Simulated scan of single mutants.
Amino acid sequence: MSKILNVEHLGKTYKSGSKQLTVLDDISFSIESGETFAIIGPSGSGKTTLLGLCAGLDYADSGAVNLCGSDLGSLNEDERAQLRNKKVGFIFQNFQLLPTLTALENVVVPLELQGAKSPSKIGKELLGKVGLGDRLHHYPSQLSGGEQQRVALARAFSNKPSILFADEPTGNLDQDTGDRVIELLFELNQEADTTLVIVSHDLELAQKCKRILQLRGGKVVSNEVLIES
Rank of each mutant, 00 (worst) to 15 (best):
V7D: 01
G11Q: 14
K15S: 14
K15Y: 11
Q20W: 10
Q20T: 14
F29Q: 04
F29I: 01
I31L: 03
P42N: 03
S43L: 07
G46V: 03
T48V: 06
T48D: 07
T49E: 08
L51F: 06
L57V: 04
Y59T: 09
Y59E: 09
V65M: 12
V65I: 15
C68F: 13
C68L: 10
S70L: 02
D71H: 10
S74D: 07
N76Y: 14
R80W: 06
A81Y: 13
R84T: 08
N85Q: 15
K86V: 05
I91F: 13
F92K: 09
Q93E: 08
A103P: 12
E105K: 15
E112Y: 09
E112A: 05
L113C: 12
G115V: 13
S120H: 11
K124A: 06
E125C: 08
E125W: 07
G128Y: 13
V130D: 02
H138M: 04
L143W: 08
L143H: 11
S144W: 09
G146W: 05
E147L: 06
Q148G: 02
V151E: 00
A156M: 04
A156K: 04
S158V: 03
D167N: 13
E168S: 10
L173E: 01
T177L: 00
G178M: 01
G178A: 02
E183S: 15
L184Q: 14
L184T: 14
L184G: 08
F186I: 03
E187R: 13
E187S: 14
E191T: 10
T195L: 04
S200Y: 10
H201N: 13
D202E: 15
D202P: 12
D202L: 05
E204V: 11
K208P: 02
R211N: 05
R211M: 07
R211A: 03
L213R: 04
L215C: 11
V220G: 01
E224C: 13
L226S: 10
E228T: 11
